[in-house]
Write a protein that binds this DNA or RNA. Structure first.
Lengths: 186, 186, 186, 186
DNA sequence: GATGAATGAGGATTCATTCAT
DNA sequence: CATGAATGAATCCTCATTCAT
């Protein structure tokens, strides 16, 4: 079996276990068994449980950020870039459910040993959003709010899969201020 | 030492440990030592590690929801209620940092044995928000997005304590659609 | 509450717990709760768990041996004494089921810390039997066998309470050699 | 070290500990240390303390019953079969002292979670004896008495090893009714 | 005298990690 | 390389025992 495939299988099994039970709850025994590869190989490839987790989180996060960054051509308008980013984000969540769960969990675990890396990745997303929505002084806070809204909405969507993706994207765009008509003051 | 104080100390130490290491990562030994009370007492008061965690989460969550519900008089307008709720939420996060961390962490752990209770509490917040922002069909999704925005913003604020609370509240209100002037289309 | 009654209640609860769960399996907490008397009292009266157990075993054993010794007048014949002893023994087992269970359990635990006392009590029973069945050289072994037969039969009887007591007594007497007609060689 | 030998060592140490302290009193720590094998191996091989105990009891019991069943050729007479069974039983007790102690102890612990299996094994012995001594209505009780006599005698013999085995066997046979001359009525 | 409340010590069990083959 | 087999170090939990009131 080629090295790359072995690695992929291990990471796959690890992701499933981490998503289901969390870092502490998942056991190396289970991961080894689920991947069909012996425990010493896990250690040979990833050094430790932390190494394995870190690698999984890191890959998932990089994949998400890269996809969002490449979602729109560099010369696109702010609105186009935001639209493409939102769409790509929702695609990612839909297609990499376990990866997303682990990532989001780590976002929430603010102080842990892996939080730094995830925080850095999330910062890049926030920056993208901030650049797209404008440059005034409060845009960083605003971007944080928008990213949180997107995360929450994505999680809600996983429980309500019938809601069409476009509706969610529209909602987020409206939140971001890209609206035909403002919500009238009640 | 009166029974209530002992209990408070244990819950305090437990909260800190859970916030820092998560449920699995925190050990009853450490909690006992940090609270200055012996392990058997933890079991006498809370029955098990799960019981202790559950009690901590439960209290924190109830306190938050109750505070938000009572934030505005019943005859207040939607905007007033939302404003008061946001303000109360930010107060809570500011004053009960560890409680908030544990709660938010549990929001992210979507499948665990305690998630149900936290999910129920969060639902009540979402409902409050949904009622405040209107009744159209997409308001549930919209409310989820707003709540996520608030959570994310609160976490960001904890890292940037100099930002005045009013600014955050204004931002969230604007997101909710209560704005003097819509963001102009760029 | 008079001291004697308190003691009796504690011993009663202890006997039940010991019979049901064994020495190690029974907990002082349970015994205290079952007797309706607080744990410190148990320690005040019996010093330790071992003390409590020992006292219970000791009383039960002494009661059994005393009853058997006094079962027949001193001038009775061997057969009469044996008959009376067997009958008394069966009475005891029937009426003090828990005491008997604990005693027999201790007989079987040959090496434990309480075995010595129980062994001494049992020796006295064996001696009585030995004196009753005769004085030839093998009578000690023979008496041991008879006592074991009685114990086993008593336990069997507890599971088959419909068998009349007289039948068991007859069987044991026949085993002891006091028979009208010997079992014919098949 | 081959797997079988490791297992044997663990069972050996377990037997000693269980015979000396009983199920509850024996600790897995002690068993592991006595066997020179680490605790996790005990769990790997036997699953739990109960599993270990159960396996030890089960093996000991099966060995005893099998030996007794195969002690005589199938076409032997009742007396021959009984003689052979008694002899085999005494051999077993002599050669597997700890196994016997644990088994006998479990016979006395009438209600525990392992009692059922031991009771079933003992029943088979009782049945063998019942078949050997005849078929009248009281033979079950009689067989129970005889088996108890054998057990008690065996225990006595362990404390008096100088008594020749044949003497004990003769005594038991005589009790069973296979005698040249009945004990004369005193 | 009597008890609610407290704890030190230890028990069963699991897990990340590492060799010997 | 690859793995079956092994373990040191925790972890959760319980229990006999003792104070302070």
């Amino acid at each position: 079996m080629p090295r790359a495939e072995r690695e992929a299988r291990m990471l796959d099994a690890a992701g499933t276990a981490f998503a289901r039970h969390g870092f502490h709850g998942a056991s190396m025994d289970d991961i080894a068994e689920a991947s069909g590869i012996s425990k010493p190989m896990l250690y040979n490839y990833f050094g430790s449980k932390e190494g394995l987790y870190s690698e999984y989180v890191s890959r998932s996060g990089r994949a998400l950020v890269a996809a969002m960054r490449d979602a729109a051509p560099p010369d696109a308008s702010a609105e186009e870039r935001l639209t493409a980013g939102i769409s790509t984000f929702l695609d990612y969540v839909d297609e990499h459910r376990t990866g997303w769960q682990v990532l989001y969990h780590e976002v929430a675990a603010q102080g842990g040993p892996f939080a730094a890396e995830v925080a850095a990745l999330r910062s890049r997303v926030v920056d993208m959003v901030a650049r797209a929505v404008g440059k005034d002084e409060s845009s960083e806070a605003f971007a944080h709010a928008l990213v949180g809204a997107g995360e929450s909405l994505a999680n809600w969507w996983l429980l309500h899969p019938d809601v069409p993706r476009a509706e969610l994207a529209g909602l987020l765009l409206r939140l971001a201020g890209f609206v035909e008509e403002p919500r009238p003051r009640p």
